[in-house]
C-alpha cells in the first residue's frame, strides 16, 4: 500500500507521458500480476506507471466520493500522451491502442460530472421541482437524466414517466433519446406511442427490438402493430411479430393483412415464409 501511494505521487509529477507499444505477453503480465509484484517485474517503469494510472482511473470512475486531490490528479492527465498499444491483429504495421490515459481521464471527468448532475436531478425530483425543458434541452443534463433512470427502481421510473407525460411531454415527446431511456425503465405504453410516431433513429430501433422481452404478449403485439405503421419500422415490427408471436391469433390476422398491403407485402412474405428455414 505504501508503494502504491508512492507511485501515485510519482504519477502526478510525470503527466506528459509517452506512447509505448508492448507485446501481448507484456500486456498479459500487466493484467495478471498483482500491483505490488508489478513494481518488481522486469517491465519498463514507464509501462508500469501508465498501467498504474490506468488502474487508478478505473477505480476512480466507480468511486462514490472523490477528493480534491483526486480531481486535480485526473485533470492533470487530460493532455498526457501516455498510451499503451499492442500490435494490431489485422495488420503488420498497425497498432491497437489498449490504454489511453488522457481519454480515460476525460471519461472519468465526464462520469463524475454526470453523477453530480444526476444528484441534482434526484434532489429536484424529491422536491418536485424537476424541469423537463431544462433537462431535455441541455445535452449533459439529458445524459445525466438517462443515467439516473438506470439507477432507480421500476416503480419510481413509472412515476417519473408519468411526470414527464403530465409536465414535460412537449419536450420529451420529440426527443427519441429521452423517450427511449424513460421507456426502457418504465415501459410506459403512452411514451411508446410517441416514439413509434417520431422519425425513427438508432434509439427507436433499439427500443423496438426489446419490446418482446419487456412487455407481455398482448401489449407487445399491440405496440408492434402500431410501430409497423411507421414505414422505417415496419420490417422490424413485422419480423418480431412473425418471430415471437406467429402462434397468436391477433398477430396472425395482422400478418395476413400485411401480406395484402402492397407496402408491406414483400417484407411480410420474407419474414413469414422464409423464417422457418433460416434459423441460425
Amino acid at each position: 500500500m505504501v508503494k502504491l501511494i508512492g507511485c501515485f505521487l510519482l504519477c502526478v509529477v510525470a503527466t506528459r507521458g509517452v506512447a509505448i507499444e508492448i507485446s501481448y505477453a507484456q500486456l498479459a503480465m500487466l493484467q495478471n500480476e498483482g500491483e505490488a509484484s508489478l513494481q518488481m517485474s522486469a517491465l519498463n517503469h514507464e509501462v508500469t506507471d501508465i498501467w498504474h494510472q490506468h488502474l487508478r482511473l478505473h477505480r476512480l470512475a466507480k468511486s462514490e466520493v472523490v477528493s480534491v486531490n483526486e480531481q486535480t490528479w485526473v485533470s492533470s492527465l487530460l493532455s498526457t500522451e501516455a498510451i499503451l498499444s499492442v500490435p494490431n491483429p489485422d495488420h503488420p504495421n498497425q497498432q491497437l491502442v489498449v490504454v489511453d490515459i488522457a481519454k480515460q481521464a476525460s471519461a472519468v471527468k465526464i462520469l463524475w460530472e454526470m453523477k453530480s448532475m444526476a444528484e441534482d436531478i434526484e434532489r429536484q425530483w424529491q422536491y418536485g421541482s424537476l424541469d423537463w425543458k431544462n433537462v431535455v434541452l441541455h445535452q449533459d443534463k439529458s445524459r445525466a437524466m438517462r443515467w439516473w433512470l438506470t439507477t432507480i427502481s421500476t416503480a419510481r421510473a413509472e412515476q417519473v414517466a408519468e411526470h414527464a407525460i403530465q409536465q414535460g411531454i412537449e419536450y420529451v415527446s420529440v426527443n427519441n433519446a429521452m423517450l427511449s431511456a424513460l421507456i426502457q425503465q418504465s415501459r410506459s405504453p403512452v411514451l411508446m406511442q410517441y416514439l413509434w410516431a417520431n422519425t425513427p433513429d438508432a434509439f427507436t430501433y433499439q427500443v423496438l427490438q426489446q419490446v418482446p422481452n419487456q412487455l407481455n404478449e398482448a401489449d407487445a403485439i399491440e405496440q408492434l402493430i402500431v410501430a409497423s405503421r411507421n414505414q422505417p419500422l415496419a420490417s422490424q415490427a413485422i419480423m418480431l411479430l412473425a418471430k415471437h408471436y406467429s402462434h397468436n391469433q391477433k398477430a396472425q390476422m395482422f400478418l395476413q393483412s400485411a401480406l395484402n398491403d402492397p407496402q408491406l407485402q414483400w417484407l411480410t412474405a420474407a419474414a413469414v415464409g422464409m423464417l422457418k428455414d433460416s434459423q441460425p
Binding site: Y205, Q206, Q209, A234, S235, M239
Partner: peptide, 20 residues
C-alpha cells in the same frame, strides 16, 4: 444490440435478418 429488420436501419441487423 442487433435488430431484426430486413430493411436497412441506423443500426446493426441480426444475422437472421441480413440473411432474409
Amino acid at each position: 444490440i442487433p435488430v431484426d429488420s430486413l430493411t436497412p436501419i441506423d443500426g446493426f441487423r441480426t444475422y437472421q435478418a441480413l440473411h432474409l
